[in-house]
Amino acid sequence: MNRLVTVAEMTLRELARRRGVLLLLLLMPLTFWLIRRDSHVGQSVRALLLGISWAVSTAALFATSAARELEPRLRLAGYRPHHLYLGRMLGLWVLGLAVSVPFFLLTVVDTTNLRYGGIAVAMLCCVLVAAPFGMVIGALLPREMEGTLLLLTVVAMQMLLDPASSGAKLTPFWSSREIATWAVDHTDGGYLSRGVLHAAVVTALLIVTVAGVFGVRLRRRRHLHHAPLV
């Protein structure tokens, strides 16, 4: 447990050095909110949730890319692969919750007649899904530019697809739109249960994927070369 906390602290420190990146991460959800604020409260809440999802996913992408050079040294120091990816994920979840709190307060102050508990659950689901999602992309696409473009593509698809379509259910952040519908439009509890179930399943699948990808990559010894037999 101590090693998980250590890696989580290292992740937060690394992200804290990128103050410009952190500022942009806060501006993205705020921008999404302001663009939709005058049109419809439901649209502004859904846009805010997507902004939080993109921000946390991008932070996870940057943290994963920045840790590539450090990971071999930590492995030599006795850290196991699960210490590295679970510790980083823990740090990103903490960051995501810290980012979500002021935006949750914003919805409470700026809107009325919402199920604020549902908004909090939707933000929590966004954070839970976004951290491992960004880590998977960061592990598979080592260049930050490529990963950022992929994240933008996913967010664009999430915004354009009809939430009721079968294709929308395959997107990682569909749960937030279902829960937001329950919180904003006061629909039946099926929206809430479907959203929470979707978030739980997607988070579990992403964590398993992270474990597999990092397990393979961190067990490689690229610096070692076998001498040919004479």
Score class of each variant (00 low, 15 high):
6 T>D: 15
7 V>H: 11
8 A>P: 05
12 L>F: 01
14 E>C: 08
16 A>G: 01
19 R>V: 10
21 V>F: 14
22 L>A: 05
34 L>Y: 04
38 D>N: 13
42 G>Q: 01
43 Q>W: 09
44 S>N: 01
48 L>P: 02
48 L>N: 02
49 L>G: 03
53 S>L: 02
55 A>H: 03
56 V>M: 07
59 A>Y: 04
62 F>H: 10
68 R>D: 10
71 E>S: 09
72 P>I: 07
75 R>Q: 09
77 A>I: 13
82 H>T: 12
83 H>C: 10
84 L>R: 00
88 R>F: 06
89 M>G: 08
89 M>R: 03
91 G>K: 05
92 L>I: 03
100 S>F: 03
103 F>V: 03
105 L>P: 02
105 L>S: 00
107 T>L: 02
107 T>I: 02
108 V>C: 06
110 D>R: 09
110 D>S: 11
114 L>F: 00
117 G>V: 06
118 G>V: 00
125 C>H: 05
128 L>R: 06
130 A>W: 01
133 F>N: 05
133 F>M: 07
137 I>P: 11
137 I>E: 02
138 G>R: 13
144 E>K: 12
146 E>V: 15
150 L>D: 00
153 T>L: 15
154 V>F: 11
156 A>L: 15
161 L>P: 06
165 S>P: 11
170 L>W: 15
175 S>Y: 07
177 R>Q: 15
178 E>S: 14
181 T>A: 11
184 V>Y: 04
186 H>K: 07
186 H>E: 05
187 T>V: 08
189 G>K: 12
189 G>S: 12
191 Y>V: 01
192 L>C: 01
197 L>G: 13
203 T>P: 07
211 A>Y: 10
212 G>F: 09
214 F>P: 08
215 G>Q: 06
219 R>Y: 11
226 H>A: 09
227 A>W: 12
228 P>W: 09
228 P>F: 05
229 L>H: 10
